[in-house]
């Protein structure tokens, strides 16, 4: 089975975000990057499926040339090769133009399955995976916490507010991964050494017209300073009084 795992390089989740001088973009000074949390789960699932069914795992990403580092991290965990799509204004792209660029590459790679995270933890949009499936005319299940592939059929469980939903689908398909799906492995030294020899292709892609122009980016106002109402169980009446008479939420 040939699998493409789509990943995005995003700022680490411990970032104290600041706005750049243009008031429209993230201040990149001191920002460290990582493979988006849910994409790591997608990569792990891809490698597990390869270990079970055989085949090949390709890591596909869009970003600056520096993002080859994040692709290598995934190769160190067992993926076979990488493709990095670059365009000079990649971070101006919207979800649709990203999905269109990925679609062209996915068609060329011809996988049975595309795995990606449920959302990238920078813009939190969660749209590229299902958009890619729609453009390809493929099945898609999102927020998947359990995945079974049997021949050209699949079953996926997804988390929803009302419980766990079980979907049936046909391959080829796009699956977006939620946290409970697996526990990503750490790369071992052997994997890291092997990754250095694995191919990472860098391919320029046409800049896409963005339908999402940022007009202003800001840090949300700090919450009004609160107060300590007291210590221990003795403070419960003071808390309830505040909730009832000040905050009016009881």
């Amino acid at each position: 089975m040939n699998i493409v795992a789509c990943i995005k390089r995003v700022p680490t989740t411990d970032l104290q975000a600041k706005v750049g001088g243009d008031q429209k973009s993230l201040d990149s000074a001191g920002v460290q990057y990582m493979v988006s949390f849910y994409d790591e789960i997608a990569v792990e699932e891809a490698v597990r499926l390869k270990e079970k069914h055989g085949g090949e795992v390709t890591i596909l990403s869009m970003g600056p040339s520096d993002a080859a580092k994040e692709i290598r991290e995934c190769l160190a965990k067992g993926a076979d090769k990488g493709v990095l799509l670059t365009d000079s204004e990649w971070d101006q792209r919207d979800a649709l133009s990203t999905a269109k660029a990925l679609k062209a590459k996915v068609e060329e790679l011809g996988p049975n399955l595309v795995l990606t995270g449920r959302l990238a933890t920078d813009h939190d949009n969660g749209a590229v995976g299902p958009m890619l499936a729609t453009l390809l005319g493929w099945a898609c299940v999102t927020d998947v916490i359990e995945l079974e592939i049997d021949g050209d059929k699949g079953t996926a469980k997804r988390e929803s507010e009302s419980g766990v939903e079980i979907y049936d689908f046909q391959l080829p398909a796009v699956i977006t991964c939620q946290k409970d799906l697996n526990e990503p492995r750490y790369a071992g030294l052997k994997g890291i050494m092997a990754a250095k020899k694995k191919p990472v292709e860098e391919a320029a892609c046409e800049p896409g017209a963005s339908q999402a122009e940022v007009t202003k980016l800001s840090v949300p106002p700090a919450r009004k300073e609160g107060r300590i109402v007291g210590e221990g169980a003795a403070a419960v009446p003071a808390l309830l009084d505040a909730l009832r008479n000040e905050a009016k939420v009881l």
Binding site: A95, G126, A127, S160, S210, A212
Partner: peptide, 23 residues
């Protein structure tokens, strides 16, 4: 921006050749 809304919206957007603004 429920689990169902978030699941359906990007697909409908793609069919309309429009991007999606989530949440």
């Amino acid at each position: 921006a429920t689990s169902t809304g978030s699941d359906v919206a990007p697909r409908a957007a793609a069919l309309l050749d429009s991007t999606l603004f989530s949440n």
